[in-house]
Design a protein around this nucleic acid. Structure first.
Length: 572
DNA sequence: CAGAGGCCTG
DNA sequence: CAGGCCTCTG
């Protein structure tokens, strides 16, 4: 998408902003379900001082929807790309902090390493119960919890989209016309995301007007946007949206007939204009995008990635330095689609389905594209770079045919790197998945005892890494003089987060749910308290902590079920 | 005894 | 990460 954007926009000297005004819609903070996640609230508040939510007018509502869909699609595409990026590419990013996985015991930070810990049969449960309870509070009904999570997830997704939009605008063309510059400024941070008309209400922030608003409200205000440019932008927007929709549809039809038909059905039910509809009533279940399977579309989405300890001044030592480059061009990675889409769309498709040197192997079925993405533009975009820069000439189009090769999705046989990546991302939601849960999320795998064990083992390894990291930082905090456990928080800027994110979400193509940050924070605090209290003398001192953390698993977005990750390894 | 978890090692 | 080995649970 970014490619598409920059390409189109730049080539025509148009301010990307014009094309992609960031429409904003913020989920009502105090939404019925009242997402208790402080983080979410904070994030929303902080998300750029501005959270202008455009008022979806009937007129541009559709456009907005399209915009939204486009963005959604872009995310999907980028995820796919991320998924298919070869290690080499990922290494690029990894370079920064490389070696995280290895030097986990640097400086003997982790005691007891090296020597087998004495086995001490412990009375699991008992003593810990209290802690767990106090730490978690009264558990709301599972359903409520789930709704909450989903809402939160969606919220994050939206936030991510917002950022993404603004990024496109910001980086899209700093050198655009002055007008462009002005416009960018008009986009306060990220406008909120817009949600469907039902489900979630759109809030409107009087202070932050979005381009869209300007467009609508400022019809009479000539200063904001020259009428010519406006008309042009409108036209382009329409065209772009339409093209994208068609392409996506055609691809989907080809790749995933079933889903396509289902979507069509939905569209029909919703009416001709329902196409861009976002969230139908009720927990925003409806598809934000059409690509993913209906059932999964609206499910909770991931958030922005990153972990770090931060916030509290005391914890600053590890928190800061989460410097990222917010201006990476969002890229659109794509894997060759499957079969040939409509000819007329080939050109656009060519751009959408960017050819990645590393991606040919496969076959990216719609299923393989994770609709999950880094709502956090800063991270999200990070890894999709080079591709975005690659100009797609007409030749590219020709090449597409080759790229659009049939897909042979390995089904069942064994777990692939794609599955591993998926598992890692799932870890952000669940630290202790049951085999049943795993079974339900890895539908494209034929579960055998072996497979099951492997998956279980993976999570076991994930946990191990996770706890080691947290413990390391907890001890560090202690050494640095932190006194209050409550002063420790894992923010997206903290080192801890970075370490974890690096491990589970290398490509930064996934928006880590803020819930995970909370869990990490709690874990950190628990470790800190335990160590400070000298409880670590007990061989099994971690058990209580594990117990607490094991209760913090949250519902995994349905999207993961559909997310086919059976991509084959890039074997030549 | 099987399987989940965990710890350690390579 | 995968392996090996051990504990605990059912």
């Amino acid at each position: 998408m970014s490619q598409l954007l920059s390409h189109t926009a730049v080539s025509r000297s148009l301010d990307p902003c014009t094309l992609f005004p960031s429409s904003a819609v913020e989920l009502p903070q105090g939404y019925e379900l009242g997402v208790p996640l402080r983080e979410a609230a904070q994030a929303l508040a902080m998300t750029r001082t501005c959270g202008p939510a455009p008022v979806p007018c009937a007129a541009d509502g559709e456009q907005l929807s399209d915009e939204y869909l486009q963005a959604k699609r872009a995310r999907v595409e980028s995820i796919i790309q991320g998924m298919s990026l070869p290690p080499a590419h990922q290494a690029l990013y990894m370079g920064m902090e490389g070696g995280l996985g290895k030097g986990r015991e640097k400086g003997g930070e982790v005691p007891n390493r090296g020597k087998r810990k004495p086995r001490v049969p412990q009375q699991q449960g008992a003593g810990v119960a209290g802690q767990g309870a106090s730490a978690m509070g009264s558990p709301p009904t599972a359903e409520c919890q789930q709704l909450r999570e989903q809402l939160c997830f969606l919220e994050q997704q939206l936030r991510w989209l917002q950022e993404r939009f603004s990024q496109v605008c910001d980086s899209g063309d700093a050198a655009q016309t002055q007008e462009g510059a002005e416009k960018v400024q008009l986009l306060p941070g990220k406008a909120g995301d817009r949600v469907g008309r039902d489900g979630v209400t759109t809030t409107h922030h009087p202070h932050t007007a979005t381009l869209w608003e300007k467009d609508e409200e400022g019809r009479g205000n000539a200063g904001v946007l020259p009428s010519v440019a406006r008309v042009l932008s409108q036209a382009l927007k329409h065209e772009l949206a339409g093209m994208t929709s068609r392409v996506v549809d055609s691809v989907l039809k080809t790749v995933w007939p079933k889903a396509a038909s289902h979507l069509l059905q939905q569209q029909q039910e919703l009416g001709p204009d329902a196409r861009g509809e976002c969230f139908p009533a009720g927990k925003g279940r409806k598809p934000l995008a059409k690509a993913p399977p209906p059932s999964t579309l609206g499910s909770p989405q991931p958030e922005a990635p990153s972990l770090s300890l931060g916030k509290s001044s005391q914890a600053r030592s590890f928190s800061t330095e989460g410097v990222r480059n917010p201006h990476q061009a969002p890229s659109v990675g794509h894997r060759p689609g499957s079969t040939a889409p409509a000819v007329e769309d080939s050109q656009l498709l060519g751009q959408l389905l960017v050819y990645t040197p590393h991606n040919h192997r496969g076959s990216p079925t719609a299923l393989e594209r994770w609709p999950l993405e880094p709502p956090d533009a800063r991270w999200a975009v990070t890894k999709l770079r080079p591709l975005a820069a690659r100009p797609l000439g007409p030749g590219m189009v020709e090449g597409n045919r080759t790229l659009l090769t049939p897909t042979y999705v390995s089904f069942g046989e064994a777990l692939t790197p794609g599955h591993l990546k998926k598992a890692k991302l799932m870890f952000f939601f669940t630290r202790y998945p049951s085999s049943a849960l795993l079974r339900s999320y890895f539908l494209d795998v034929q579960f055998s005892r072996c497979i099951n064990s492997q998956l279980i083992k993976w999570f076991s390894n994930f946990r191990e890494f996770y706890y080691i990291q947290v413990e390391k930082f907890a001890r560090q905090a202690l050494l640095e003089g932190v006194t209050e456990a409550t002063a420790l928080h894992v923010s997206r800027d903290s080192e801890l987060f970075r370490a974890l994110n690096m491990h589970y979400n290398k490509g930064n193509d996934f928006q880590v749910p803020s819930r995970f940050l909370e869990v990490a924070s709690l874990t950190l605090q628990e470790f800190f308290s335990a160590v400070r209290a000298g409880r670590d003398v007990d061989p099994s001192w971690k058990k209580p902590i594990y117990k607490i953390i094991s209760k913090l698993d949250s519902h995994i977005p349905e999207v993961f079920k559909a997310a086919g990750c059976s991509q084959e390894l890039p074997h030549n």
